[in-house]
Design a protein around this nucleic acid. Sequence first.
DNA 1: GTGAGTGCAAATGCTTTGCAGACGT
DNA 2: ACGTCTGCAAAGCATTTGCACTCAC
Lengths: 158, 158
Amino acid sequence: MPGDLAYDPSDSQALARRLRALHVRVTSQRLLVLEALAAHRGHMTAEEVMRWAAPRFSGLNLATVYRTLELLVSLGLVAQTDLGGEATAFELVGGAPHHHLVCESCGAVIEMDDSLFQSLRSDVQRRYGFDARSRHIALFGVCRDCRSAAAASETDTR
Amino acid sequence: MPGDLAYDPSDSQALARRLRALHVRVTSQRLLVLEALAAHRGHMTAEEVMRWAAPRFSGLNLATVYRTLELLVSLGLVAQTDLGGEATAFELVGGAPHHHLVCESCGAVIEMDDSLFQSLRSDVQRRYGFDARSRHIALFGVCRDCRSAAAASETDTR
DNA sequence: GTGAGTGCAAATGCTTTGCAGACGT
DNA sequence: ACGTCTGCAAAGCATTTGCACTCAC
């Protein structure tokens, strides 16, 4: 229901098969990173993956997490996005393509359907001959909740 | 002709007046950073500002450049954008509002008119109640030149 | 004169890398 | 067995910060 991956991301058997199909070695560290991303559903920093995985595999190293994420990104299994925070965000590829709306006030991250982005993409193509890759994009601004909160407090203080 | 600032950015007298109007102290370091951005016309990293300014003011410090850029951003005189490189890009505010198309192949940065972005902005507003601020945005992809170059070489090698 | 601004150097936080040993194939 | 992957520790890089001194006001 939640996604429509070609494999079940919480099934390590399936993950292993998936990796093998891509001609890379299957290690417990790699499976663990994938499971972390699957469990957390949504974006995670390398540090967060580490915190989730470490209790399940003592000895796991942050450098390995970084190397693994880099590998998974190059394999196309994981998407990498800069959400404006200090650390880079990673998330499992699959489900509907989307981008991110980042609230500068509360930090919330809203998933924006990729369809909204299509017309800008074709405009940019037509006008500049520029082919915008569907790499995840982040727009910064203020979310609905923070806007109404701000409006309310403005009324109060006045 | 090139821009339509309310002041001439290459005239340090005007820059000084501008700063004073905003109630901040006028120092040669601040003027120099502004002049650097004005001279370079377009985006610069802190390091680039430093390289431009250092010969003109020995003793200038990179930390000061960072502090100054941060101040200018908070005053609204300078815009800050993450163009995907390692360092953050800064540019003088003024002229037509725009965003950036960054070619992942050759590194070129094309300025995209803000008008193209308006419909996405209103869609996002309508659909998610999210108010996308006009903070500069970067889209990543492949520029026209690199696309045709790629197409050409593909024909060659085949 | 006074507090904000600056230079200097050290610290920070994320990320990468060199190397020796461990492990998947 | 082979070559890749990992852990460890140290380095790298952009950016920030503490502190004493300086300068714009």
